[in-house]
Design a protein around this nucleic acid. Structure first.
Lengths: 133, 133
DNA sequence: TGCATGATTGCACTATAGTGCAAGTGTTGT
DNA sequence: ACAACACTTGCACTATAGTGCAATCATGCA
């Protein structure tokens, strides 16, 4: 079920937070769906924090979520067309501090732990910790 | 002088407000530069309110402002390229409540009061008031 | 059935943002 | 010099957003 955004500014409000922008940008670049624990390991942020930001993104209509057993997979919503256009803009943003590059690297490493394309392991924060945080 | 935005989320923060989105959208559609009093008449909002929102947009790097006598003209900043891309997205947003259409109509009417392409008259709010507000 | 675990949420706290009023700044024209 | 006017801003107030802790929900497995 997808929640339609009524107020246009809600879309920008959803992206007006560093953590949420990291989430969206990671998904824009990879295109993959991912569960919360994979995001926790990739962004190195506590699960309750990401869970709340995911909810906000869902309510803004940018993400759709689907439960599979214990795991909840989140993916980008790409319609209406202006959302796809928005994601292209997000992808074009500068990454002066290298945050998104670091997130992406951890995410790619984390994907290696999947089996049959599904997450099996839960939070492994320590294993993916880097000096950058 | 243009202020460079350091944090990408600041751009979205700047657009995460209905009034500021109305300002940007009006400028995206028309492409014109405009002074504060023209915006006051177009958006039917008090000048102190718009003045503050214009400042925020300026600090975010979306607008540049230039003083000409008593009047201050504001125009869109279109570089770097992702800003132009962002404006295209803004233009593609739905206008379910007809707000932007009404703003645009008042703005076009207001432009008729210019002489030699420059504003001459100051705030005329009452003259542009519509039943919609 | 009970436990481990992925995910969510209630609560309290803090910081920030938006607003209206009123005062102030700077420029034009008389 | 003075008044008018376009525009800005200090102040107080209110509402909202983000965060951490801890409790809770929900599912799979022994």
């Amino acid at each position: 079920m997808q929640i339609i955004t009524i107020q246009p500014e809600a879309i920008f409000q959803a992206l007006a937070d560093e953590t949420r922008l990291r989430i969206i940008r990671l998904k824009v670049v990879t295109g993959d769906e991912s569960c919360l624990c994979e995001l926790v390991d990739s962004l190195q942020e506590p699960s309750y924090k990401l869970s709340r930001h995911l909810k906000i993104l869902r309510q803004a209509g940018l993400l759709s979520s689907q439960k599979e057993g214990r795991w909840v997979y989140h993916r980008l919503v790409t319609t209406p067309a202006y959302l796809a256009q928005l994601y292209a803009t997000v992808q074009a943003l500068p990454d002066s501090k290298g945050i998104y590059r670091a997130d992406l690297k951890r995410f790619r490493d984390r994907l290696c732990l999947r089996e049959d394309g599904r997450c099996q392991v839960g939070i492994q924060s320590e294993a993916f910790k880097t000096e950058a945080g």
